[in-house]
Design a protein around this nucleic acid. Structure first.
Lengths: 236, 236
DNA sequence: TAGATTGTTAATCGATTAACAATC
DNA sequence: TAGATTGTTAATCGATTAACAATC
């Protein structure tokens, strides 16, 4: 495959979802000074099987070297290119409440190719506040910050406002939305929405815990630093 | 299937991940006063196909009524039971930085069957602070709050501390972990870990955006509230 | 050449989907 | 009975996995 062919061939969705994990592991290995890495070792670092890793990389048209492994920085650059991280993506966050605040101040985005360029909220007590060096603006100013098609919108508003705010983001030219509101968003074709539902994640854990039957009966042997009877389980 | 058989039969993982969405939609419908709902209507509310919804519910052994639909409150209770929400789950949050703070103050957990019973951090400037009515404690007090097997641990610490803190949670009896740190956790059998990686979510969106080819070329027609030339795209 | 490790093949597994018989 | 809608079947699709020939 050609270097210029980036993005031409279809990559399975399950593979795409793992690319960020590979990228991160490669960053760590590169920082540790490693030059090459085998599929076995990289897979171990990411917590997947080596066959799956090789299959994933084969979709990128990535070439390792048989008998040797993958060039750490080379593979890192290849994946980073695929994720469009040659230049950083602009991100706007709408809804500067509890969660929006945290996301605005989260250092982990900059490290991974994203730049928070706008914060938006219509609450009069929030507008004007500066979070992480960025001033909070009213939503009416969305157009001034969003580069159509080049800006990712993060939605951290209450569920009841999510659709409305999403519509405004799309109108401003946002084509990629990360939705933290527990609401289903309708968007036109060509707009990509991903949803992160924090409570759902807990509910899924709860389902499995319930299924393991830990509820109600005393768990068999739990590694513990002290006798069980000492635990008071108070709720602060 | 028996009412008592809850949790006996295997539910596919993909189905489990959708149960929280169904539950939420049913809450909304119940609040709107709806008595029954068809698979078509419920599926529409959740944004999935009706065949998938019926298949999912069939795994629960749930019985709707042919020709009529599903009883809204009945189905709600059934799913809530499966998620173990007859009684609330206890949650502890470790790492009261930016994100941990937001999670501790997030109202959306209580509504959905979870109770934040402990906040932990070893930073001397954070310990003792009260967030959302709960006092931040040092990690050494984990044992006092965790009910072995009945408490879900939320990890909001930096990646480099994630494994260590996770080990301490497990030692205290936590069997379900929600990990926000971009790190791979090793846990013993019987411990369930889910990972939420915020930067990854953005990277996946970026991959698709890049693939759509929005980068570099002006997008065709973007619905907009004003002329494109007016956008200055400043970075605050 | 001998040893190591990739990239690919083929088998398997799980999830989705459409269609429809069962039945309210 | 006629109309509506479930629960299930069977076909299809996509993802995972193990094995191994290719090749460094």
């Amino acid at each position: 495959m050609d270097e210029d062919d980036v993005g031409t061939v279809d990559v399975p969705e399950a593979t795409v979802a793992r690319l960020p994990q590979y990228l991160r592991a490669l960053s760590v290995l590169a920082e540790a000074g490693l030059r090459t890495v085998s599929s076995e070792a990289l897979a171990e670092a990411v917590g997947v099987g080596s066959a799956k890793l090789r299959k994933d990389l084969s979709h990128l048209g990535s070439y390792g070297t048989r008998g040797v492994g993958y060039d750490v920085t080379g593979l890192h650059r290849q994946i980073a290119d695929r994720l469009g991280q040659a230049t950083p993506w602009n991100v706007v966050i709408v809804g500067i409440g509890n969660l929006g605040h945290a996301l605005a101040g989260y250092g982990g985005f900059a490290d991974r190719g994203f730049r928070v360029v706008g914060l938006f909220d219509d609450g009069p007590q929030v507008v004007g506040e500066v979070v992480g060096g960025v001033r909070v603006r009213p939503l009416s100013e969305l157009d001034r910050v969003v580069h159509p098609g080049e800006t990712i919108g993060v939605l951290a508003v209450p569920a009841e406002h999510a659709q409305d705010v999403c519509d405004r983001l799309v109108a401003a030219g946002v084509r990629s939305v990360l939705n933290f509101a527990p609401a289903v968003l309708r968007v036109p074709d060509g707009v990509d929405v991903r949803k992160v539902d924090l409570a759902s994640e807990l509910q899924i854990l709860a389902f499995h815990a319930q299924r393991r039957g830990v509820r109600g009966n005393v768990p068999a042997r739990v590694p513990s630093l002290g006798p069980v009877t000492e635990r008071v389980g108070e709720v602060v």
